[in-house]
Design a protein around this nucleic acid. Sequence first.
DNA 1: CAGTCTGTGTAGATTGATCTACACCAATCC
DNA 2: GGATTGGTGTAGATCAATCTACACAGACTG
Lengths: 356, 356
Amino acid sequence: MASRPSAGSVTIEDVAREAGVSRAAVSKVIRNAYGVSPAMKARVAEAIEKLGYRPSVSARGMRGATFTVGIEIPELSNPFFPKLLAGATAALSGSPYQLIIAPADPEHGEGYRAIQALVDRQVDGVIAVSPLVDPEWLEALAANVPVVMIGRHDRSAKYDAVVSDDEVGARMVMRHLLDLGHRDIAHLTPAAGFTGIGSGAPQAIRVDAYRDAMQEAGLGDRIRVVRSPNGAPESRRVALGLLAEPDRPTAVFASHDEPALGVLHAVADAGLTAADVSVAGYDDIEIAAHPGISLTTVDQHGERMGRLAAELLLERIAGRAEPRHEVVRPELVVRASTRPPRPRGGAARLRAAGGT
Amino acid sequence: MASRPSAGSVTIEDVAREAGVSRAAVSKVIRNAYGVSPAMKARVAEAIEKLGYRPSVSARGMRGATFTVGIEIPELSNPFFPKLLAGATAALSGSPYQLIIAPADPEHGEGYRAIQALVDRQVDGVIAVSPLVDPEWLEALAANVPVVMIGRHDRSAKYDAVVSDDEVGARMVMRHLLDLGHRDIAHLTPAAGFTGIGSGAPQAIRVDAYRDAMQEAGLGDRIRVVRSPNGAPESRRVALGLLAEPDRPTAVFASHDEPALGVLHAVADAGLTAADVSVAGYDDIEIAAHPGISLTTVDQHGERMGRLAAELLLERIAGRAEPRHEVVRPELVVRASTRPPRPRGGAARLRAAGGT
DNA sequence: CAGTCTGTGTAGATTGATCTACACCAATCC
DNA sequence: GGATTGGTGTAGATCAATCTACACAGACTG
């Protein structure tokens, strides 16, 4: 059935000799090109099978395509990204394209290196999740190879983008919290540099939406944007500090589920519960649905985004030139981590306990 | 600073022309080969920088190395695997090697395809996490390219292995549960085919250790091995069935943390707590430490395993021929999901509630 | 001063595929 | 019956690097 990998490496030359035809003939057969008789096709196929021949991707890359698409991903430890991968993998599953992943080495800022590594390997297309790389650099890149960016709100004539409607998503969270009666809502988001450049990054959009929502609710003076790296341990530390403040917020809206988990952890550390401090995240990672966590969050439909990105990339590879910019509508998922705030004041605790 | 990717693609030829030297000279400079004067080196380096030249990995692959190592990973959705990746990435960070990941498409059984895809791409070495691929196939593979397997207990003269001491790890869990006083301990593990072949797979070792430990404790008649796919939702469903049985176990030992999360979910679904059913996992994924989960588990030291695998691979690439087989000692991490069982009988519930 | 190193650079074969241009053969057309 | 056409197959250039063999200089040796 599946042929074993042959010892050494068998080349197209070997197959040609075995089948008694020319190299070109073999090449035609494997590419399904025009000008092959059924008889020759059969002979060649048999020789390929017999020798366990596999075309060298490197050699192919020298002239034609490598049938490889690359995806650049930051921090795989965040479960949201595997969702994108699952979607992309599914979309490519039927195609002749193999997906390879290049993890962005956190030491070497923002994926330039990983993306470059993919391009160096002659991939036929690139999907990248790097909200902060320079648009000009990307345009130059996209001039050479099809590129689909995930999570960039800027528009380009050269590369495609798949993006969640972060404005809408963040506003859904804020509406939910405000409707519950919260007024002291803090927003936890990565370091300023991270949300600074332009307004391309999802986090930046979410910060703006948070600010706007607070402003519109007449809570402009209570706007509190707290900066923290994205990891759960880091945000846990930051949140502990926040909860220790005398005027601690009654709700924390984190820009991602991972830091939201850290906040939940801090809430528990401080001996508090969701009745004291509501927590909302963003991404809807799998664990958020677990009863021990039960995190209110926004489902970005990561699989769908990954699938869409792969589909757009295949279209690009097939020749489409007009840029596309797909917006996926997110969805609020309300769980137990958000509740109405306790009324303020001394006797409040008792009344609230009875009310809820 | 970092040169932009040039339009089109600049070849070694272009650099040679710019620097006024031969192709071979440029090649020598980039490879740091013998026979280059400092003066020429400087001129070439300048030309490379100016043109933003990047060597084509495909062309390199035709003769020499690709400076790429591949890692094959099943289901990235299981957070244990990103741990391995983090370790491997760290170990390769200083080296000239770029890591690329090939996800094993679950549709196309057991990573053959993904590993083959990596080899087709001329990687200089392969790390793979595929406990079930045929040893013969692997030996043939390893004859052509350095291979390090993670999580295989079989020994090979051709490929290296990094493996956790699953026997010891599983026994630590069992000792812990038995010491707590549990006697009805069930073991949740993937489908039989999955643990069947030889005793190479970690899951198989753990099953055996579970059986042995029960036997030695005189509980041979209470051995209960329950089969379930690895995903949390699937194991949740299976666990729900198990918990509904009249003689439900007082403790469940799952072969991985992911299914353990599913069991915890089921325990909550059934309106039970850790006081009713203890749950232990295996892997120590990050969320296990979260207070909402607090799962007793075994730390396999995934990062260390990933790092070790990458180091062994680099040694192999550098020329080592003798096989190595590294065993990493796991560590029990006790958390709140395991507790002493309630004493049996009608009034037990009350007594237990007072005692704990 | 011829012969031998040693250090530096180059020419050109090589790698495994793709792809254009063309050759060959039979059948068909006028 | 010679010219055309269509279907098959091949020759050979090409892609961008590596790497062996060698050429050439100047320095050193006997």
